[in-house]
Design a binder for these strands. Structure first.
Length: 575
DNA sequence: TAGCAGTCAATATC
DNA sequence: GATATTGACTGCTA
């Protein structure tokens, strides 16, 4: 009996131990499972955090979408401007309103320039009825640009289709409407239209902001020039290097640029491929493709828009990221020499006066021979240096001047370069640039330099103008000889001077002012000259009108247009 | 053909 | 970097 009970107890004890083990195993499994779940939870939490961060970073999606639309609009309209701006006369029916205002496709409230002009003119019944206060208009535009922090360059390019300098000129000295030709009226119509179209203003503001943000504006229409030639050569060289070897100090720049381009490309592609926004974009940018080449395989419309962005960004990044490669100086005055040795010496001596303030020559588009044959990338550096040395010697040009003006190098560097030229294949990208510059400089010796008149020369011309505003050919020749200038330079100066005096008379604001000599940006003693205002009996009606206007606007200044015209009339009378 | 209006773009200036 | 100046040019007109 006792034995049976002991056996039962023993069995029960075994059972308890088994259950305890089982319990322990379950507990361990549960703990592991809990740990696993906790780990998964942590992972999920991290994932959620990442997603939230991503969501946060993409909150400007709508804004970017809007900007891309704006950019697309401008891509289209810029092409329109670049072609239509060459139209010599303004034809309201032709619709240059494409500039910026074509955004009406997304803004039904936008007025077209055509309808705008019609509305403005309807009150008068014909063109004469369009009477704008150009001074006020210019002032309003200046204020708007200032308020929105929009530069004249961007405004001129996208809205007016004009260069920055012209915009500056028009805004600073607007002619009265009645004195403008139909061509001259066009920028003012555009300004008026721009001011009246909130969408255009907003779009331009966005673009300016965008350009200032990540890109450098490339507002000048692309053209074929020496810079392009060198750029192509160097690009080709870089491509070869990337394919062949890694001896390229410019490679990192290129990679960085391409990464940025790729990012924008992806963003733009995504934008364009989204069904909701995949509207038609039937403006292929063939011209830009030709100008800049393509980064990606060609794509069909509507992704042509993407292509246009690539080209634009490529252009902008190229200009921004490769300053050392940018072939800046080729077209500057020292790139080429006048045919006449005396003039060459004069050009260099004149420019030498200013070399202290000059840095590496800047970019300037000047056409060079399109048959330029440097694409072979196999320049004879020894021959080039020999020819450069000979040219410098013949023209008595110092290495210092040549280095500063053509290569952007010091005299010692020029000396080293000319004395010990490396073979082309051993040169780095930057080293090749110097030889390309020298080669172009040698290739195009007939190009005229930009003349910069000295204060003394201006003074002489001004004095001559005082006595003879319409100089005879003999006087022009005499002045040219006296100053060592070309006769065309003297003639141009007189044309320009008369033109600007007239313009300044027109554009003068109502208050009395001191009339500045065009040369007055320099401290020239004769910048203030008393103006003649008394009318002349022999004046025509137009002259009288001109005089009234002048009389009401100008009290002191350079010799007036009335006296100029009067003298001309007197000359004719004498004849 | 001279002169002009309008403009570009290199350069100066701020 | 943005703006102003100015020599040179184009296209038009008388």
């Amino acid at each position: 009996m006792v034995t049976m009970r002991d056996r039962d107890i023993q069995r029960l004890e075994q059972e308890v131990r088994r259950l305890q083990r089982l319990l322990q195993e379950v507990q361990e499994r549960s703990a592991n499972h809990v740990a696993l779940l906790q780990q998964q939870l942590a992972n999920k939490s991290q994932h959620i955090e990442r997603l939230q961060a991503k969501l946060q970073s993409q909150q400007d999606y709508e804004k970017i979408k809007t900007e891309l639309r704006s950019l697309r609009t401008l891509m289209q309209t810029t092409d329109d401007v670049s072609t239509e701006v060459k139209t010599p006369e303004f034809h309201p029916s032709v619709g240059k309103e494409e500039v910026l205002n074509e955004s009406s496709s997304s803004s039904s409230s936008s007025l077209s320039l055509q309808s705008f002009i019609k509305e403005e003119c309807d009150s008068g019944g014909d063109d004469d009825g369009c009477e704008f206060d150009t001074t006020r208009l210019a002032q309003q535009v200046k204020e708007a640009l200032q308020r929105l922090n929009i530069g004249q360059r961007v405004f001129g390019h996208y809205v007016l289709g004009l260069s920055q300098g012209t915009v500056s000129d028009i805004l600073a000295r607007p002619k009265p409407w009645s004195k403008l030709t139909s061509r001259g009226k066009e920028p003012f119509l555009r300004m008026k239209h721009f001011l009246s179209d909130e969408h255009s203003i907003r779009t331009l503001s966005v673009i300016q902001e965008r350009l200032r943000g990540i890109l450098v504006p490339c507002v000048r229409p692309p053209d074929v020039n020496s810079d392009d030639v060198i750029r192509k050569i160097l690009d080709q060289s870089r491509l070869q290097m990337l394919d062949g070897d890694d001896d390229d100090d410019g490679g990192s720049d290129g990679d960085a640029s391409d990464n940025v381009i790729r990012n924008i490309l992806q963003q733009a592609k995504h934008e364009m491929q989204t069904p909701a926004t995949n509207d038609t974009c039937d403006a292929p940018v063939r011209q830009e493709e030709e100008d800049y080449g393509t980064l990606e395989p060609s794509v069909q419309s509507p992704v042509d828009f993407v292509q246009s962005i690539i080209q634009k960004v490529k252009c902008e990044l190229d200009e921004d990221s490769e300053p050392s490669v940018s072939p800046c100086s080729i077209s500057r005055s020292f790139q080429t020499l006048p045919a006449d040795p005396d003039q060459r010496a004069q050009v260099f001596s004149r420019s030498e006066e200013n070399t202290e303030t000059r840095e590496r020559p800047r970019s300037c588009p000047t056409a060079v021979s399109s048959s330029f044959e440097l694409q072979s990338l196999d320049l004879d550096t020894f021959s080039i240096t020999q020819r450069v040395k000979e040219t410098l010697m013949i023209n008595n040009i110092g290495q210092r001047v040549f280095g500063e003006e053509v290569l952007g190098l010091t005299q010692s560097s020029v000396s080293e370069l000319l004395s010990h030229p490396k073979p082309w294949t051993k040169l780095s990208l930057k080293g090749k640039e110097n030889f390309v510059r020298m080669h172009l400089w040698l290739q195009d010796p007939q190009k005229k330099p930009r003349v910069i008149l000295s204060p003394q020369e201006r003074e002489t011309l001004m004095a001559a103008y005082q006595t003879e505003p319409y100089p005879s050919p003999y006087t022009v020749e005499r002045l040219a000889a006296q100053l060592g200038l070309q006769t065309s330079t003297v003639s141009n100066w007189f044309y320009n001077h008369r033109s600007r005096i007239r313009r300044d008379g027109f554009s003068e604001p109502l208050q009395t002012r001191t009339f500045q000599n065009p040369a007055a940006s320099r401290p020239v003693s004769d910048s203030l000259v008393r103006i003649k205002q008394e009318p002349s009996d022999g004046d025509t009606e137009e002259d009288a009108d001109l005089q009234r206007e002048q009389h009401s606007h100008v009290s002191v200044g350079v010799q007036s247009v009335m006296s100029v015209k009067r003298e001309k009339t007197e000359d004719l009378s004498d004849l």
